[in-house]
Simulated scan of single mutants.
Amino acid sequence: MKFFKTSFSLLALLLLASCVGNMNPTGGNSTPNYPYFITTKPLVVKKIAVPTGTKLVYEEQFFKEGKQDKMLNERDLTDIGLPSGQTIIWGGVPVTSISRFFNSEMRGFTVYADFTKLSEDKKNRFSRLWQSCDSGIGIAVKDIDDWSFNTKNISDVQSCSVLYQRYFKDNAEQQNFLDEMYTALLETGSK
């Protein structure tokens, strides 16, 4: 009987271990195949001019998944990914992608830079602060339909990597850095 209990426990443990990597925390067993569209000509999306070959990813939708033959509603856009090796200038900085905040109650997006494509003579206070985080910056906006570097629409810098987050309101160092970054962003936009 002891052998049976030990064998049964071992079998249950093996079955559980084999499932661990296959489980999705949202309840499904696979990652959603979000609908996306690859631009076939230069376009303006969320008030940003994007080149041919840009990948536009949309919210999960019924009966639409994977590659689409045409653009979907811009309101449902979650990500703009530029073709490999290409950038657009956002706030004087070459960027590779922009992603809407995952939390839909937050009005904003994260911008990802490629600082290897920013020459020293083009750097300014804003780009240097951004580069010091070595990651994306979270931008809060008034109008979620405008992802451009429009300082009249940008209401704050919410984050710069995981190092600086508005969420940690009691951390003066983080708040001061983000305040300085927001001021530098506004100065860059006024030039």
Rank of each mutant, 00 (worst) to 15 (best):
G28M: 04
G28L: 05
G28H: 06
G28E: 10
N29Y: 02
S30T: 06
S30E: 08
S30D: 09
S30C: 01
T31Y: 10
T31N: 08
T31M: 06
N33K: 11
N33H: 11
Y34N: 10
P35K: 06
P35G: 14
Y36A: 14
Y36H: 13
Y36V: 03
I38A: 01
T39I: 09
T39K: 09
K41E: 15
K41A: 15
L43K: 03
L43A: 02
L43C: 04
V44P: 01
K46A: 03
K47T: 04
K47F: 00
I48M: 14
I48P: 04
I48V: 15
A49H: 01
A49S: 11
V50W: 01
V50G: 08
P51N: 13
P51A: 13
T52H: 10
T52F: 05
T52K: 15
T52R: 14
T52L: 12
G53E: 07
G53T: 08
T54R: 00
K55R: 15
K55A: 08
V57M: 03
V57N: 01
Y58K: 01
E59N: 12
E59A: 06
E60K: 11
E60A: 11
Q61W: 01
F62D: 00
K64P: 11
K64R: 13
E65I: 02
E65N: 14
E65C: 05
E65Q: 13
G66C: 09
G66E: 07
K67W: 01
Q68V: 05
Q68L: 02
D69K: 14
D69T: 14
D69H: 11
K70G: 12
L72K: 07
N73C: 07
E74R: 05
E74Q: 13
R75G: 00
D76R: 11
D76W: 02
D76A: 13
D76Y: 04
L77A: 02
T78E: 13
D79G: 01
G81W: 04
G81N: 10
G81R: 07
L82R: 04
L82H: 04
L82W: 02
P83T: 15
P83V: 15
S84D: 11
G85D: 10
I88R: 03
I88Q: 07
I88H: 08
I89E: 15
I89P: 00
W90F: 09
W90I: 02
W90S: 12
W90P: 00
